[in-house]
Design a protein around this nucleic acid. Structure first.
Lengths: 187, 187
DNA sequence: GTCGATGTAGACAGATCTGTCTACACTGTA
DNA sequence: TACAGTGTAGACAGATCTGTCTACATCGAC
């Protein structure tokens, strides 16, 4: 769902191929488990090309997270709209993601857990990502720009984070989604 | 709070020193960022001793998570009891942990995000840990052994997971705790 | 006195990792 | 026509990583 189409990657310029390959490997296997050499091999570029576009692995990680953020927000907003644009849209939208076969949680939460003290910028990046997610959630509520909507969205966002993590260790995702729906029904 | 006392480690047998050192380094820096050589150096043992007690790094990781589970559950149960043993105890209990200077989230969630596909056992380990956490939460509710309490505890546990993760990227933890309290007030 | 358990100091092997380097080719634009 | 941008194939350096190995010492229990 949020994964790129591998069959079309070969036609892309080298930089795009590197970023999409890193995106797929970092999300699936983790950042430290994915060496630069593996990204280079699977993107079918050379080291000179890689280091011409990305001065370091850490820079690639930042661009991976930025790219992930933009793609995820696009999907999230569109899917919420598709499902009706109100709070009832939230769980059906999350169902599309949490039930995916390639689901591996939130790239930001995972990266924070893996590298949070080694690369402190990841906490800021994660906070901004979640703030924007919460703004989208606020948009589902009556009077979306009010203080009350922001506070309620933050509470809902916290529960969504819990569901995201829960779907990583608990199967099936449907259990977690039902739990989230039950919580939303009480708010 | 949940960290061991470094000043007393030297007096312990080698196996305990290794486990406590791994516990501290894995929790603070992540698993892959912590090499075996570093654990050995800081535990003040030799490689032969290390590999006599732990056949592999993965085995050490499993024992780190088991140890973390037992210590965390002990703290969690005792702190909940100290704060009154009912649902109102939950947020004050979590405040002790989430506000800690060495706070780095949940070792299970972090390990799952870092190594979830490389070491699939971690998902099962995490699920069992969270099931036991939820059983403790159910114990705070009226009629703790009922189906209803289990379901409510699972919902609360999901929100707790969200708070745990939120406290990693959002400062101060007090904001997250207030949000959690607001959610609990609505349940 | 013997033996098992526990501990010691690295050397070593093989693998993996990040980043730099050389010299060249192709393409598109001005 | 020239030049900048983009791309190529590794070799190489230095570092880090996991796990095995040798030979010995100490201690406590039987």
């Amino acid at each position: 769902m949020l994964m790129s189409e591998p069959s079309k990657i070969e036609a892309l310029p080298a930089r795009e191929r590197i970023l999409l390959t890193a995106y797929r490997l970092f999300y699936r296997h983790g950042i430290r488990a994915t060496g630069v050499d593996r990204v280079i091999a699977e993107a079918k570029v050379t080291k000179v090309t890689f280091y011409r576009h990305f001065p370091s692995k850490n820079q690639l990680v930042f661009e991976f997270l930025d790219y992930r953020h933009r793609r995820w927000m696009d999907w999230f907003s569109q899917s919420l709209a598709t499902h009706g644009g109100n709070l009832a849209a939230l769980v059906p939208t999350l169902r599309e993601w949490l039930g995916d076969a390639d689901y591996r949680g939130c790239a930001f939460i995972n990266s924070l857990g893996e590298l949070g003290t080694t690369v402190p910028e990841i906490a800021d990046i994660t906070r901004r990502h979640k703030q924007e997610m919460n703004r989208s959630i606020a948009g589902l509520l009556p009077d979306p720009r009010s203080r009350k909507a922001a506070e309620k969205a933050a509470i809902i966002g916290m529960a969504v984070d819990g569901a995201i993590v829960g779907a990583q260790y608990a199967k099936p995702a449907e259990t977690v989604l039902n739990r989230l729906q039950a919580l939303l029904d009480k708010l």
